[in-house]
């Protein structure tokens, strides 16, 4: 059964968000390549911005999909986004500089297959399913790549599997200290919860697009804060500090804005007041 329970009224159309999200994510991912060109790690923070852009887009995709009664909770959508995205992302890292584009193409293929399976084989017959699953696989793959770039300064396989530890001032190669060992699981869940939370937390009759998208940006920056703290172990201190400062500023601004928007939409904003009287109860 696929009954559409809500429609998107007003606000920015989904296709605009899709286009803007895709372009800005890819641009931000490629801006981290400045690290290679300038032989520094200072531009790693663009990976975090790519995550924020992808999550804003992905949360709206979830809104489009979950407007239909899909029969599962909203969080499951976040899990499938990153579950399908991680395959594309890992495979794509082998392609060097082309990695983001290859991840995009692979994720589209994986998403289309998953969409076909759910709509035609499992017979869910939800109109938005194929496009939404495709978009979510892309969002998952690109966000994971963004986290990788943020934490290690690189999105290539070699950069993600090589790590180093400094023992008594000497730098030693140590694969135990690489993104694939320590960062991937954290990036997966950080993204999977951040992508589903905006719609899950604002659903209801009073849903507003701007409030949800602001929350998506807030979740993205919050994930970036902790990922930037983890990046201290993997990239130079100065570069990690730049990421951390940008993340904290972004998070504080979006959190404050989200609270303002919630205050605007709430029925009342009370402090230590009793339950209001409602007629008939």
């Amino acid at each position: 059964m696929s009954v559409k329970v809500e429609v998107i009224e007003g606000g920015v159309p989904h296709n605009n968000i899709l286009a803007a999200g895709l372009v800005s994510t890819l641009v931000c991912l490629y801006l981290t390549y400045l690290n290679v060109l300038t032989s520094t790690q200072m531009f790693s923070f663009f990976g975090g911005l790519a995550v924020v852009a992808a999550l804003v887009w992905g949360s709206h995709t979830i809104k489009v999909l979950c407007s239909y009664g899909i029969g599962t909770g909203v969080p499951s959508a976040g899990m499938i986004a990153f579950g399908s995205g991680v395959i594309a992302m890992l495979l794509a890292t082998k392609f060097g500089m082309l990695a983001p584009v290859v991840a995009l193409v692979l994720a589209v293929v994986i998403g289309l297959i998953l969409g076909y399976v759910s709509n035609n084989i499992l017979n869910m017959k939800i109109p938005a399913m194929v496009q939404a699953l495709t978009e979510m696989a892309v969002v998952g793959a690109l966000s994971l790549m963004g986290f990788a770039a943020l934490m290690t300064g690189s999105f290539t396989f070699a950069g993600l599997t090589n790590g180093s530890t400094s023992v008594m001032g000497m730098i030693l190669a140590n694969h135990e200290m690489s993104f694939m060992v320590g960062g991937l699981a954290v990036a997966f869940l950080l993204g999977a919860l951040a992508i589903q939370h905006p719609f899950n937390a604002t659903l209801g009759p009073g849903w507003k697009q701007d409030r949800m998208l602001m929350l998506a940006a807030e979740c993205g920056f919050l994930s970036m804060v902790v990922a930037a703290i983890m990046s201290f172990a993997l990239i130079s201190t100065g570069s990690a500090l730049i990421s951390l400062i940008i993340a904290i500023i972004g998070w504080a601004y979006t959190y404050q804005q989200y609270m303002e928007l919630s205050k605007r939409d709430a029925a009342a904003w009370l402090n230590a007041k009793p339950i209001p009287d409602v007629e008939g109860h």
């Binding site: 604002t202 659903l203 009759p205 929350l215 919630s262 709430a266 029925a267 009342a268 009370l270």
Partner: peptide, 19 residues
Amino acid sequence: TAYVGRTASLAKFGQPVYV
């Protein structure tokens, strides 16, 4: 964010946000 967001979306039914 979850409490504030969910409660704000229930504004139609008069549910206030309690700080």
